[in-house]
Write a protein that binds this DNA or RNA. Structure first.
Lengths: 224, 224
DNA sequence: ATTACTATCTACCGAGTAG
DNA sequence: TCTACTCGGTAGATAGTAA
């Protein structure tokens, strides 16, 4: 593999057009371009030549350099990795917190037909009547939790059952402890603050994972 | 500017999604990814932090890293330069040779109406009746000269004047000694071999540049 | 003018280890 | 566990200079 110290040199050679044909280049010219000494440039060229990233030809007093297929490929590979890395959308967040027992309001809301129907149609599962409540300790986790508010997520509309109105909410598909699939709830004007994460799932997460209050739980959240 | 030794680390951070938000990353994790020791990873992170390419947050035992705007920009800049360098078509060749006097055949052919009309319409100038002949000394120059044969260039069709037929040729826009614009001729089945380069121009190049036999002349050739 | 050797100096790395 | 220090070894850089 190409050494990182040689990337500058390969880049300059590309810019000079050394992938098309031999380019006239003295070690002094290269030195100026890479901001190193003539001796360093000489060494870089000879090392790159040794590893077949380039070929050199000497014609009386002039030296010519041409990138080999291997040299161009190495740079193309770097370009491709960079493209991937820069364009990649990271859709996964991981948040950890300790399990605690809420006031039971979660269970009440989740079971309401107005919400439940939407969970079934939008998430594809009928939620277990109850939420898993995690207390977020670290600043990082709380900041990640707050960040969810600014993302679209899967929308759950508010409704009116004739007696009172129920607010909007949104959720994000999630996996608890890398095992149980479900969704994280982000309720507007929630009764909890940013230190709480509520998770719903088709199953009873507590019993499936055999966890109880105080246990540390991690949730992978798909924010796409 | 970012040091080349740190590119690996920045690249790994990008791949981990550290441009979107804080990513949990220990110095040991990073060490594995970049194939260096934990101590080296630690130093890389602290140097990058010092130069504001990234921010770090420590939460009890966990360390989180997030690329700054500057860090992402540095990588985006590299990506953009790489894109340019890889896509750039280098359309210019430079060939040098020593001036010599030919047999005068060049003047005869260039002045023939069948060719002259095409020079005027395809090149946009009425050529001086005579060619500038350069003797190519170095292997590099001769190989560049031969390479012209494989390129399209500007086509000059052959013709028949009733007495005999005149062959096809092609030419490439060129600049002699960085001053006089004209064109290099590549005649099919030429009477010269690959050690000769023929240049035509509207002006008399010898008198405009005040050059004479034996002088070293350089020609920039547009091969697009 | 070149390129590239030797000698010297600096920066980087890894081992050990403290906090 | 974790991060990051010191320190000794080595790779990389420069200066001087030969060819």
């Amino acid at each position: 593999m190409v050494k990182s110290i040689h990337l500058q040199t390969l880049l300059e050679l590309l810019l000079l057009g050394a992938k098309e044909g031999p380019v006239k280049l003295s070690t002094m010219d290269l030195a100026k371009k890479i901001g190193k000494s003539q001796q360093a440039a000489s060494k870089h060229l000879s090392e790159l030549e040794q590893h077949r990233f380039l070929e050199r030809m000497v014609e009386s007093n002039d030296s010519y350099v041409k990138l080999t297929r291997k040299g161009v490929d190495a740079m193309a590979e770097l370009h491709s990795v960079l493209t991937t890395a820069l364009e990649k959308k990271h859709r996964i967040r991981e948040i950890s917190g300790t399990l605690f027992t809420g006031l039971g309001e979660g269970a009440y809301y989740v079971a309401l037909p107005g919400y439940r129907r939407q969970f079934i149609s939008n998430l594809g599962f009928d939620p277990f009547p109850g939420t898993l409540n995690l207390r977020l300790i670290s600043k990082i986790d709380r900041s990640l939790r707050r960040d969810l508010e600014h993302r679209a997520g899967i929308s759950i509309e508010g409704f009116d059952d004739g007696e009172r109105t129920y607010g909007r909410a949104k959720c994000f598909r999630s996996t608890v402890n890398n095992k149980v699939k479900g969704a994280v709830l982000a309720v507007e004007r929630t009764h909890y603050d940013d230190s709480v994460l509520e998770v719903i799932a088709h199953e009873n997460i507590r019993s499936v994972l055999k966890v109880s209050d105080g246990d540390m739980i991690s949730v992978r959240i798909d924010i796409s």
